[in-house]
Design a protein around this nucleic acid. Structure first.
Lengths: 119, 119
DNA sequence: GAGGCAGTTCAAAAATTCTTGAACTAAGAG
DNA sequence: CTCTTAGTTCAAGAATTTTTGAACTGCCTC
């Protein structure tokens, strides 16, 4: 994954509805969910849902599959992994100056360290 | 990190200039770089640079420190790790249905699987 | 092949984000 | 105190993204 792709994937996930959408699909495995069901669960109107799903699909994060009258959408785990790999490689300096992902440091934006976040 | 914070961090990185900015800072370690130098290296005018640095800072991804007349910015590794942790936890279903990050699968957006990406 | 359900596409409006340039604050040098 | 360098803030405009509603396509049932 190159920078351009990473930006597409990051941008696709950087939106409330789409992140919720993707999270929902991730929990559904490779089978995925038909658009209608997704819309119901998330309370998103059809045309808007289509728009957001298209964005995710365009970034390669979801896949579409038709089953008679329904369109099933499912998470593309490989793309997410590619994104994580990209971020991991570009987050840690070449000398692994930051802890591995598997070692959660974390907290939240405005108080990750109590420092400058909000200032 | 909660969904709101994740969106802020994702959104902060989902922009060409800011991703380049962050990548540059990551390679510079905790010392960071003064704003002027960053602007020169990336060819970004001062006021725009300030704007983007503020976005990153607001998402907790960078920290500001003054050294006499210069303002040094440095990457906040903890925030990036928090984001990676969030994505990892929300990418893999509760049953770890996708491969670990450390096991790159990857390719790029439009041809991760040769399937629906661009359609 | 008429009717209807599932979902998409399209165009216009609303909201947000990015860019620019001018005016401003902070800190050191003379 | 005045000047200069370093960088920020602000307001306006440009560009992009999100939302809405109406019209459309694909597929099944009768």
């Amino acid at each position: 994954m190159d920078q351009k792709c990473a930006i597409a994937a990051l941008g696709a996930l950087a939106q409330e509805t789409r992140l919720a959408l993707f999270r929902l699909l991730v929990t559904c495995g490779p089978t995925g969910l038909p658009a209608g069901t997704i819309g119901e669960r998330l309370g998103v109107p059809p045309s808007l849902l289509s728009f957001h799903l298209a964005q995710l699909a365009h970034a390669g994060l979801v896949t579409q599959r038709r089953s008679s009258r329904q369109l099933f959408y499912s998470a593309e785990y490989g793309a997410m992994n590619a994104l994580l790999t990209y971020l991991t490689e570009n987050c840690c300096g070449r000398d692994a100056v930051c802890a591995p992902v598997c070692n959660p440091a974390a907290c939240c934006c405005t108080d990750a360290t109590g420092k400058t976040a909000a200032a």
